[in-house]
Amino acid sequence: MDRYGAMVLRVCRAVLGPTDAEDAWSETFLAALKAYPGLPEDANVEAWLVTIAHRKALDVWRADRRRPVAVAEVPDRGRADEWHGDLWAALARLPHKQRLAVAYHHLAGLPYAEIAAITGGTTDAARRAAADGMKRLRTLYTEEETA
């Protein structure tokens, strides 16, 4: 368990931003502890944890949509915002599918087939979303750096 904490935190921050990431991380590992004894021995633990984290992120997004007033995203805890804030900010401006594909492939190291299984859609679509996401991220990141 201890081995995967940092990876899941990076993924949660990339997908949800610093504010919601820590709640999602906590809920992911608590759910993982509950389910762990049933995990097959040959299971891909990274993919399994990212799948749980993805479901927790969906819960956060659904709750966000139900919030009556949109709140500006203000990082309010930890030092995640100092944690190379430009790159996180650029990630947050990606279209949803691209943001997920980039996080799950480039931060969690999952193959595109696993990503497709988690997010829905085809392996090719996941590969395209990651490639498009990286292209867009490059543009956004350069803008933020020079801004």
Binding site: G5, L9, R10, E22, L33, R79, H84, L107, L137
Partner: peptide, 26 residues
């Protein structure tokens, strides 16, 4: 463009989250 700029570890946050997980699990 790569993610080398993002540190692999954030010890302060990880310690905080670990303590919270232990309390929740207990």
């Amino acid at each position: 463009m790569n993610f080398d700029a993002l540190p692999l570890e954030d010890p302060a946050a990880q310690a905080r989250l670990h303590a919270r997980l232990v309390a929740d699990a207990e």
